[in-house]
Design a protein around this nucleic acid. Structure first.
Lengths: 65, 65
DNA sequence: TGCTGAAGTAAAGTTTGCTTTACATTATGC
DNA sequence: GCATAATGTAAAGCAAACTTTACTTCAGCA
């Protein structure tokens, strides 16, 4: 599932480390989600939406598999 | 994470079995998510939003932990 | 009565999300 | 040159999502 976290994070001038801290996860988790290694859990997706100030549907591409 | 899947499913007159088939998961998964045993993955949450014709934020309560 | 559909619980097992640790690369600045 | 910050990869291990199977309960109906 593709996402625009990297772009949104950079717009907010947040490092991966800073975003990880805001989300309460490790830096590896941020890297892995940004690079598409895996999808975040639903609670984490909601936190991302709150931290990045964007609706979930705007952060993730709902394209089908 | 609380959700309104059961109510939305019943409004659409879908059985758990029918919803599971539409989502491409097992009936157990539908039961477990409806009853709050665990949260769906993000891809599954998107499928739920599509099948139930409601935005993710309307299906799940984003209350903080 | 007994059958069938819908909803529910439980347990074992696989897959995926997440953590922790360690190491590599690139850029900035002393 | 050396240190530090930011990004990235990889691997081992734990936790949560999901599957499969099996069993239970309740309602409706012939």
């Amino acid at each position: 599932m593709k996402n625009h976290i990297k772009a949104l994070r950079q717009q907010r001038e947040l490092t991966q480390q800073a975003l990880a801290k805001l989300l309460g996860v490790s830096r590896q988790t941020v890297i892995s989600i940004e690079s598409g290694r895996f999808d975040p859990s639903l609670p984490l997706a909601f936190k991302l939406a709150r931290v990045l100030d964007a609706p979930i549907e705007a952060i993730f591409d709902a394209e089908e598999g």
